[in-house]
Structures are given as structure tokens and as C-alpha cells.
Design a protein around this nucleic acid. Structure first.
Lengths: 197, 197
DNA sequence: AAGAAAATAGACGACTGGTCTAATTTTCCT
DNA sequence: AGGAAAATTAGACCAGTCGTCTATTTTCTT
């Protein structure tokens, strides 16, 4: 294996190891030593793989967003049924990952948004691009749904998409507070009514 | 001034001083020494006012929630107009505090929910009670609106209230990410459509 | 007014944080 | 295979954390 490849692989390994830790305790609260311990990599090596902890955080978010958008595209554009069906599938995916998923699978955006936005401008802007992408994809699908008739609401697709996404974000936050699935179920009823699906 | 009063006043003073710090950087990231420095109280005295940092955090949230619910009741139940008007007034209040408000005024629930829910069971349960109270109040008003006709949606008031609150929570989170007022405006359009006001 | 009790100041300890430099190990080319 | 160059790691560093502890000041009681 080439050196550059090993280097890249080690980076990925550290990032993946950090994922569940950061997902549970946040970015600042998790120390580099803990991450490297879990990853099985000596502490002193960190700064050979990342320039700083912040650069590390940026990379973590970048990869998270990238993989998330990939999964999202699969659900929204490469699955069966009409637009309404696909949106429902996205909702179920979101709900399931929050309720049953492993700690490492839970939404890093919800976990980190409040913390990171006031901490690092660069990390904030990665989140900004990520959320904009998700809303854009969702808006596109909602537009399709309106044309084909599976989405009844006549509101601007972008507004609907942003609102639905924000509703789900807030719902996830609420679920962190209440440890209950009720917020999800209520949000879904509201989503259906809002989109008229 | 009696001793007990001075003690209480000092506690309040420390809590108020901590407010903007915690609102900007979160709970764990803010050190006790920084809080006391801002409050103008020597470091060593902290543990005469609070049992621990966590007990301090609980008190901070308790007071925040208490004052918030007071303001909310003023807006929702002691102001002019029908139910729809009062909900609109609550929306404007929320929007204004997030957009123009001082750092210390911004919503501590949004800032701390993700961090604290996985950190301290007791702090989480304070947030849980707080959010439940807000939703309960909002639900009551929505019910009134339905009876008087200013709220057109026939959905359960509780579901509507929870959904609107979650939407606004998510909107605030989104606004932290994007630094734009657009999410708020979009969310308000969606709120009006959802409630049919 | 004087002694007892409570409250406070400020240093201190044990620890953890991110970061950096010097030493070690590995790689690669002659 | 030998030695230079590169990649990796160990260990120390200093600043900062929470929480404790004792000496001093302030307050209350009689």
C-alpha cells in the first residue's frame, strides 16, 4: 500500500472513530486523546493527519454532509413511487435513525449546529452548504410532486422544503429533550397536512 | 439587608452574568472562573452559592424557563386581539429576539438542548418540562382560536402546537447556521398555512 | 463591645486540553 | 544493502478546567 493511501486511510479511520464520540458528546467536549485512543492511534500522531482540531472538525462535517447527501439522493431520487411516497420514505429514514439508530448514526447537524455555529465560522459554513443542499433536493422533489399531483399544496416548493426540513430539525431536537417518539409522529401529521399529501 | 437575601441576590447576579456567556458558548465550554470574573465575584466563592457546576446549570435553566413562560403568558394571554393575532405576536417576539436581540436574550433552549440532553439527566428534564409547558400554553390558545374561528385548521390543538413549536425550534437552529432571516419568514408562511390563519 | 458563627478570598491540586519539538521508525533510491 | 529522506511517534509543554481547603474578613448574637 502506498504511503499516501495509508495516510488517507488513517485519516478516514480517525474520522470514523470520532463520529460516535462527537455525536454523543459534541465537538469541544471530546478530546483529541480520546478520539485517538478509540482509533488505536498514538496521540502524538494527530498533527500529522490534521492541521488542527478545527481542521479536523471541518473534515468531519464535510464527510458527514457528503455521505448524508448521497443517502438522501438514493432515497429521494432512486426509489419507487411518486414524490409523496419518496418524501414519506425520507421521513421514515429520518425517524428510524433517530429512534433506533446507533449513536454514531444520529444526525450530526442537529447535535453540532448550535455548538459549532458560534464556535467556528468555517464549520458553520459547511453546515450551511449541507443544509442548503438538502433543502434544494427536497424542493426539487416537492416541485415534481406538485406537477404530478401527489403534492397538493400550491406554496413555493422552496418554502415548503425549507419549512419541512426546519420542522424535522426541531423535531429531532425535541426528541433529544423528551426521549419520546411522539414529536416525530406529530410532525409527520403536520408535514402531511402542510404538503397536502 | 439580611444575610439570606444577600446570598440569594448574589446567586441571581451570578446566574444573570452567566446567561450571555452560556448563550454564546454553551454550558460545558464556559468555565466557572470566567463566569465569576464577569460577575465580579472571586473564584473561591462559587461553591458557597452552588453545590456544583451541574447544580448551577440546573438553576440557570430553571430560571430561564420560568422567566420565559412568564413572558409567554403575557404575550399569549394578556394582549389584545384574537388567538391568531396573539400567535402572530409570539412569532414576532421570537423572530425579533433571535435576529436583533442581545446575545444574552437568545433562546437558551435551542442553544443547550443538543448539548445538555446527552450530558445531564436533570438538566434535560428541566428542558423537557419547559418545552412541555410552552406547548401546552400554545395548544390552549390554538384551541381557543379554533372555537372562535380565527384558527381554521381542524387538527388537534396539541398536535398543531407541538408542530409549530418544533418548526420554530428548527427555524432558530437553521438561523444559527445560515445567519439569515429567510428561514423565519418561510417558517411563518408555513405556520400560517398549517394553522390556517 | 466582644466573642461566636457565617461568608468569602485566593491560592492550590490533580487533571485534561490542544499543540509542538525532538527522537524514532519506516520508506525509498542508489 | 546502506544511507538519506520522509513519515511517524513519544513525551513534554503550558494554559485552562473543576473542585477543595484554609486563613481572613464580615456578620450576628448576647
Amino acid at each position: 500500500m502506498k504511503v499516501a493511501e495509508k495516510h488517507r486511510a488513517a485519516r478516514q479511520h480517525i474520522l470514523k472513530a470520532a463520529w460516535p464520540l462527537v455525536g454523543q458528546r459534541g465537538f469541544s467536549a471530546v478530546g483529541i486523546s480520546q478520539i485517538l485512543e478509540v482509533a488505536g492511534i498514538p496521540k502524538g500522531s494527530f498533527y500529522h493527519y490534521f492541521e488542527s482540531k478545527e481542521a479536523f472538525g471541518e473534515e468531519l462535517l464535510r464527510i458527514y454532509v457528503e455521505e448524508y447527501v448521497e443517502k438522501l439522493d438514493d432515497i429521494l431520487f432512486k426509489s419507487e413511487g411518486n414524490a409523496a411516497d419518496r418524501i414519506a420514505r425520507y421521513y421514515r429514514f429520518w425517524r428510524d435513525t433517530q429512534l433506533d439508530g446507533q449513536v454514531g448514526d444520529k444526525c450530526l447537524i442537529v447535535k453540532l449546529a448550535a455548538e459549532v455555529s458560534d464556535l467556528s465560522e468555517r464549520m458553520r459554513s459547511i453546515l450551511e452548504m449541507g443544509t442548503a443542499t438538502v433543502i434544494e433536493r427536497l424542493g426539487k422533489l416537492i416541485g415534481t410532486g406538485q406537477k404530478e399531483g401527489s403534492v397538493g399544496s400550491p406554496m413555493e416548493p422552496d418554502i415548503l422544503a425549507a419549512s419541512v426540513y426546519q420542522l424535522w430539525l426541531g423535531t429531532t431536537l425535541m426528541m433529544k429533550i423528551t426521549h419520546s417518539s411522539l414529536p416525530f409522529d406529530q410532525a409527520w401529521l403536520a408535514t402531511k397536512r402542510l404538503l397536502e399529501i
